[in-house]
Amino acid sequence: MSVNTPATPGGAPNASLRPLRKPRRDWMGLLYVAPALALVLVFFLVPLGMTAWMSLHNWPLIGVPRWIGFANYRALWNDINFWNALAFTIRYTIAATIGLMLVGFALALLVEKPRPFAGFYRTAFFLPVVIGFASASLLWSWLSNVDSGLFSPLAEALGLTDGRLNLLATFAPAFWSVTAMVIWKMAGFYMVILMSGLHSIPADFTEAARIDGASALQRFRFITLPLVRRPFALALILCVSGSMLAFDQFYIILAGGPQNKTITAVYWIFSQSFVSFRLGYGAALSMVLLAILVVLSVIQLRLLGDKETAR
């Protein structure tokens, strides 16, 4: 506040000059953002428009597209498999998000302060993030293999299970095994985001609170938590939209099994487009998923957005 106040009188004459300069400035501004705009246009808006256009056709992978209006969307409404896939995706998103946020936050608190080996731990926790999802999934599917992997023989050797248990053959162990893999792989990423938030909390706040006699728990509850809300919101939105688009891990480790119980929304879109060769229908599914993601992100922004800016 004290910084802002003297700036206001200085800003006033500027503001009165603005109408004169405005047109040229606008053109210059447009020129500066033109490269970014072009990128957005070519790599986002045009493909989006094409997807929307395809979704209005019966568009086979091979053969001739035929205009069918909104028939794909009507078919989608009755497509029980898509809604099941979406329900599963939401279930996975909830599990993965809670796990990732808790582990990510715990890791961030652990490595935030300059402690001995903090740099080493930061790197170690972040390391799995740089592996691609596909490679991590392949690694995990080998580790989970009942005959030649690690987990089942290890559990048997330790006497945890009676005989070898095929982790991937029933829903619950398969689901949690994949979720655990995702947490192992991605927690480091959210750790970094949350850690940067923790670093931006001015040390005087905690110091003042400590002088006033606030306990560690109180300092965490009333200073740390409110002040990491913005980076937390960013992490949450990235995590939810990332999890809603989950595909690789379920495709590679489980192939949608056991008994098609782990098919995610994107998996179903892929399957319709490139296994059943119905590109138009896949495009319609993509549009619906996009709409759902936009709604989810808006809700999260509203819930976690800064109250100051909302006012």
């Binding site: 192939a255 949608g256 056991p258 008994q259 098609n260 399957s271 296994v275 059943s276 060769f277």
Partner: peptide
Amino acid sequence: TVFNDLINSANGPWITMLNTAFF
């Protein structure tokens, strides 16, 4: 004409039936 959909698909009706019934 829909062989891929029926049979080869990793989540198609053919392998879903066999996997459920075999095990």
